[in-house]
Protein backbone atom coordinates (compact mmCIF):
# COMPACT_ATOMS: atom_id res chain seq x y z
CA UNK A 1 0.00 0.00 0.00
CA UNK A 2 1.45 3.33 -1.01
CA UNK A 3 1.75 6.20 1.47
CA UNK A 4 -0.93 8.13 -0.37
CA UNK A 5 -3.51 5.38 0.02
CA UNK A 6 -2.59 4.84 3.66
CA UNK A 7 -3.18 8.47 4.65
CA UNK A 8 -6.36 8.54 2.61
CA UNK A 9 -7.71 5.85 4.89
CA UNK A 10 -6.36 7.70 7.93
CA UNK A 11 -8.08 10.92 6.92
CA UNK A 12 -11.33 9.16 6.06
CA UNK A 13 -11.61 7.68 9.52
CA UNK A 14 -10.20 10.71 11.35
CA UNK A 15 -12.08 11.58 14.53
CA UNK A 16 -13.35 15.15 14.51
CA UNK A 17 -14.05 16.93 17.78
CA UNK A 18 -17.15 19.16 17.72
CA UNK A 19 -18.24 21.71 20.27
CA UNK A 20 -21.86 22.56 21.00
CA UNK A 21 -23.19 25.35 23.20
CA UNK A 22 -26.34 24.16 25.02
CA UNK A 23 -27.38 27.60 26.22
CA UNK A 24 -31.16 28.02 25.88
CA UNK A 25 -31.42 24.88 23.76
CA UNK A 26 -34.07 22.21 24.04
CA UNK A 27 -32.15 19.13 25.28
CA UNK A 28 -34.47 16.68 23.50
CA UNK A 29 -34.11 18.36 20.12
CA UNK A 30 -30.38 18.77 20.74
CA UNK A 31 -30.10 15.05 21.51
CA UNK A 32 -31.39 14.14 18.05
CA UNK A 33 -28.84 16.49 16.51
CA UNK A 34 -25.84 15.45 18.61
CA UNK A 35 -26.59 11.76 18.17
CA UNK A 36 -25.82 12.05 14.47
CA UNK A 37 -22.35 13.39 15.16
CA UNK A 38 -21.64 10.86 17.91
CA UNK A 39 -22.62 7.90 15.76
CA UNK A 40 -21.10 9.26 12.55
CA UNK A 41 -24.47 9.33 10.79
CA UNK A 42 -23.50 12.57 9.05
CA UNK A 43 -20.69 10.82 7.15
CA UNK A 44 -21.10 9.19 3.73
CA UNK A 45 -19.03 6.22 4.95
CA UNK A 46 -21.45 5.47 7.79
CA UNK A 47 -22.11 1.83 8.56
CA UNK A 48 -23.29 0.38 11.89
CA UNK A 49 -20.13 -1.72 12.09
CA UNK A 50 -17.75 1.04 10.99
CA UNK A 51 -16.20 2.84 13.95
CA UNK A 52 -16.62 6.29 12.45
CA UNK A 53 -18.32 8.34 15.18
CA UNK A 54 -17.00 11.74 16.26
CA UNK A 55 -16.46 13.36 19.65
CA UNK A 56 -18.86 16.03 20.86
CA UNK A 57 -18.05 18.48 23.64
CA UNK A 58 -21.14 20.17 25.06
CA UNK A 59 -20.69 23.31 27.13
CA UNK A 60 -23.18 25.24 29.28
CA UNK A 61 -25.30 22.18 30.01
CA UNK A 62 -26.76 23.93 33.04
CA UNK A 63 -28.28 26.59 30.75
CA UNK A 64 -30.61 24.23 28.86
CA UNK A 65 -34.23 25.26 28.30
CA UNK A 66 -37.03 22.72 28.68
CA UNK A 67 -40.19 23.44 26.70
CA UNK A 68 -43.54 24.28 28.38
CA UNK A 69 -43.93 23.07 31.94
CA UNK A 70 -41.49 20.18 31.47
CA UNK A 71 -39.38 21.29 34.42
CA UNK A 72 -42.34 20.60 36.70
CA UNK A 73 -44.01 17.70 34.88
CA UNK A 74 -41.14 15.57 33.53
CA UNK A 75 -40.28 12.76 35.93
CA UNK A 76 -37.16 10.62 35.97
CA UNK A 77 -37.69 7.17 37.42
CA UNK A 78 -35.09 5.19 39.29
CA UNK A 79 -35.28 1.91 41.15
CA UNK A 80 -32.57 0.73 43.51
CA UNK A 81 -33.62 -2.91 43.09
CA UNK A 82 -34.67 -3.31 46.70
CA UNK A 83 -38.35 -3.44 47.75
CA UNK A 84 -39.65 0.07 48.04
CA UNK A 85 -36.58 1.32 46.23
CA UNK A 86 -38.48 3.18 43.52
CA UNK A 87 -38.00 6.91 43.33
CA UNK A 88 -39.35 9.60 41.01
CA UNK A 89 -37.32 12.74 40.52
CA UNK A 90 -38.70 15.86 38.82
CA UNK A 91 -36.62 17.40 36.08
CA UNK A 92 -35.84 20.54 38.07
CA UNK A 93 -34.71 18.41 41.01
CA UNK A 94 -32.45 16.31 38.83
CA UNK A 95 -31.03 19.42 37.20
CA UNK A 96 -30.22 20.81 40.62
CA UNK A 97 -28.37 17.64 41.60
CA UNK A 98 -26.41 17.29 38.35
CA UNK A 99 -26.77 19.95 35.64
CA UNK A 100 -25.44 17.65 32.86
CA UNK A 101 -27.70 14.70 33.54
CA UNK A 102 -30.84 15.77 31.66
CA UNK A 103 -28.92 16.23 28.42
CA UNK A 104 -26.99 13.01 28.97
CA UNK A 105 -30.15 11.00 29.51
CA UNK A 106 -31.82 12.68 26.53
CA UNK A 107 -28.97 11.63 24.22
CA UNK A 108 -28.74 8.16 25.75
CA UNK A 109 -32.45 7.53 25.20
CA UNK A 110 -32.34 8.94 21.68
CA UNK A 111 -30.09 6.07 20.58
CA UNK A 112 -31.16 2.47 20.12
CA UNK A 113 -30.30 0.15 22.96
CA UNK A 114 -27.53 -1.93 21.41
CA UNK A 115 -24.01 -2.88 22.42
CA UNK A 116 -22.56 0.15 20.69
CA UNK A 117 -24.57 2.69 22.69
CA UNK A 118 -22.34 2.82 25.76
CA UNK A 119 -19.19 3.14 23.63
CA UNK A 120 -20.81 5.93 21.65
CA UNK A 121 -21.69 7.71 24.90
CA UNK A 122 -17.99 7.61 25.83
CA UNK A 123 -17.37 10.08 23.02
CA UNK A 124 -19.72 12.62 24.58
CA UNK A 125 -18.13 15.16 26.92
CA UNK A 126 -20.55 17.27 28.96
CA UNK A 127 -19.60 20.37 30.92
CA UNK A 128 -22.02 22.38 33.10
CA UNK A 129 -20.43 25.70 32.18
CA UNK A 130 -17.89 27.24 29.84
CA UNK A 131 -14.77 25.97 31.60
CA UNK A 132 -13.34 23.11 29.54
CA UNK A 133 -9.93 21.54 30.27
CA UNK A 134 -7.18 22.70 27.94
CA UNK A 135 -6.29 19.22 26.69
CA UNK A 136 -9.89 18.78 25.50
CA UNK A 137 -10.06 22.26 23.99
CA UNK A 138 -6.94 21.58 21.89
CA UNK A 139 -8.70 18.76 20.01
CA UNK A 140 -11.70 20.76 18.90
CA UNK A 141 -11.90 21.70 15.25
CA UNK A 142 -15.58 22.27 14.54
CA UNK A 143 -18.58 24.00 16.08
CA UNK A 144 -22.11 22.63 15.74
CA UNK A 145 -24.66 25.34 15.03
CA UNK A 146 -27.26 25.83 17.76
CA UNK A 147 -30.82 24.78 16.90
CA UNK A 148 -32.34 28.07 18.10
CA UNK A 149 -30.69 31.48 18.20
CA UNK A 150 -30.17 32.70 21.77
CA UNK A 151 -32.15 35.92 22.31
CA UNK A 152 -30.71 38.64 24.49
CA UNK A 153 -32.71 39.05 27.65
CA UNK A 154 -34.16 42.46 28.49
CA UNK A 155 -32.25 42.64 31.76
CA UNK A 156 -28.99 42.11 29.84
CA UNK A 157 -29.45 45.38 27.94
CA UNK A 158 -28.05 48.53 29.52
CA UNK A 159 -30.49 51.19 30.60
CA UNK A 160 -29.32 53.54 27.81
CA UNK A 161 -29.88 50.91 25.17
CA UNK A 162 -33.42 50.37 26.39
CA UNK A 163 -34.07 54.07 26.43
CA UNK A 164 -32.67 54.63 22.94
CA UNK A 165 -34.56 51.71 21.44
CA UNK A 166 -36.85 53.12 18.68
CA UNK A 167 -40.46 53.18 19.73
CA UNK A 168 -43.61 53.68 17.67
CA UNK A 169 -45.68 54.92 20.59
CA UNK A 170 -45.00 55.85 24.16
CA UNK A 171 -47.11 56.45 27.17
CA UNK A 172 -48.20 60.04 27.65
CA UNK A 173 -46.03 61.92 30.16
CA UNK A 174 -48.86 62.21 32.66
CA UNK A 175 -49.73 58.51 32.41
CA UNK A 176 -49.52 56.74 35.73
CA UNK A 177 -48.28 53.18 35.67
CA UNK A 178 -49.56 51.25 38.63
Amino acid sequence: MSALKRVQQWATFARIWHIYDATWQNPFESAALLKKYLMGLHKPIYHPLADCGDHVVVINCSEIALPGDEWKKRVYFHHTGYPGGASWTLAWELHKKNPTLILKKAIYHNMRGNLQRRYTMERLHLFPNESVPDEVMKNISNQIRQIRPVPKRLDHYTEDEVKEFPKLIDYPKDYIIR
Partner: peptide, 14 residues
Amino acid sequence: CNESATNTILANYQ
Protein backbone atom coordinates in the same frame (compact mmCIF):
# COMPACT_ATOMS: atom_id res chain seq x y z
CA CYS B 1 -4.96 23.69 6.29
CA ASN B 2 -6.82 21.60 8.86
CA GLU B 3 -6.17 19.63 11.98
CA SER B 4 -8.27 17.45 14.22
CA ALA B 5 -7.91 15.61 17.52
CA THR B 6 -4.38 16.98 17.85
CA ASN B 7 -4.07 15.99 21.49
CA THR B 8 -4.87 12.32 20.90
CA ILE B 9 -3.15 9.43 19.14
CA LEU B 10 -5.74 9.74 16.37
CA ALA B 11 -4.41 13.17 15.40
CA ASN B 12 -4.90 14.09 11.77
CA TYR B 13 -3.35 17.00 9.91
CA GLN B 14 -4.07 18.34 6.45
